[in-house]
Amino acid sequence: MLVRALIVLFSVLNLGAAVWWIAHDSLPPPAPVQVPPGVAPLQLVNEAGAPPPSMPPTPASATAAAPSPVDEGTTAASAQQCFSFGPYASNEAGAAAAAKLKPLVRTLATRGQAETSTRGWRVYLPPQASREQAEAVAQRIGAAGFSDFLIVRDGAEANSIALGRYRGEDAANKRVQALNAAGFAARAQALDGPEAVAVWLDVVAGEAFDARRAQAAIAAEQFRKIDCAAMPR
């Protein structure tokens, strides 16, 4: 009796469970999760075939700017120096000096310059107001112990007094100083010789260039610093 009752009870329970399973409403699907803009959604490892999320592009402003190269032309220009060596009395002498100087510099240019040679020096007193005054001054010069003087009678320098000619400037200056000390306003003047063309070497050199050593190496009478902007390009 008891067994039957249990069988009937289990049958009723099974039937009720089947009726509930058929009649119940299915649960709605879960709502999709809203992801904030710019954030990549999570992805499971086993989701095969899904492409990896792309990284946002790097802004151009975040890229570090590469340092600009140093302007080598400006640096080189600021480090250069320019000189002129000479004068040389002939083209042959200038060419020989240029051959020695060229390896030491960046650029070299040969330049010819007209120069007037000096034949000597003369010492004189300027023209006096009259011949009588010139003769009076000449007498005073002789009385002071000086010799070698002459009154110029004609020409543009009439009534001047010539006081001697000298080969070198030093000798002429000594004569002038002695006459000045005695109270005579003597002067010295160079006597120009024939015009000649002298050769000069203009160079552009680096910062370490030694101009004095180069002058000795090429036997230049002198050197002078010049403006690099005046050098030919």
Rank of each mutant, 00 (worst) to 15 (best):
D210P: 00
A171G: 09
N180G: 12
E195Y: 00
G168I: 03
V197C: 07
D192W: 00
G206H: 06
A188C: 06
W200M: 14
D192F: 03
V197K: 13
A172N: 12
L179C: 07
I161V: 10
D210R: 02
Q177C: 06
A178P: 02
L191V: 13
Q189R: 11
Y166K: 07
A205C: 06
L163A: 04
A182W: 05
R167W: 11
L179Q: 03
G183D: 06
A172Y: 09
P194C: 03
A171W: 00
N173P: 09
A208E: 11
A178Y: 01
L179N: 02
V199G: 05
A211H: 06
S160L: 08
K174C: 00
R165S: 09
A162W: 12
G168W: 00
V203C: 05
D170H: 08
E207V: 11
F209T: 10
A211I: 07
R212V: 07
A178K: 11
R165C: 00
R187M: 14
I161L: 04
E207D: 15
W200Q: 13
N180W: 08
A205G: 05
A181P: 03
A162N: 12
D170I: 11
A190R: 11
W200L: 14
G164A: 08
R165G: 02
I161H: 02
A188D: 10
R167A: 14
V199N: 09
V199C: 12
S160Q: 07
D210F: 03
Y166S: 08
G168H: 06
A171M: 09
D210H: 03
A198M: 15
A205T: 01
G183S: 05
G183N: 05
E169F: 14
E195C: 01
G193L: 03
A185L: 07
A196D: 15
V197Y: 12
Q177W: 05
Q177I: 09
A172K: 10
A188K: 06
A171H: 07
S160V: 07
W200F: 15
A211F: 06
G183W: 04
F184T: 05
V176P: 02
Q189V: 10
D192C: 01
V204M: 13
F209A: 10
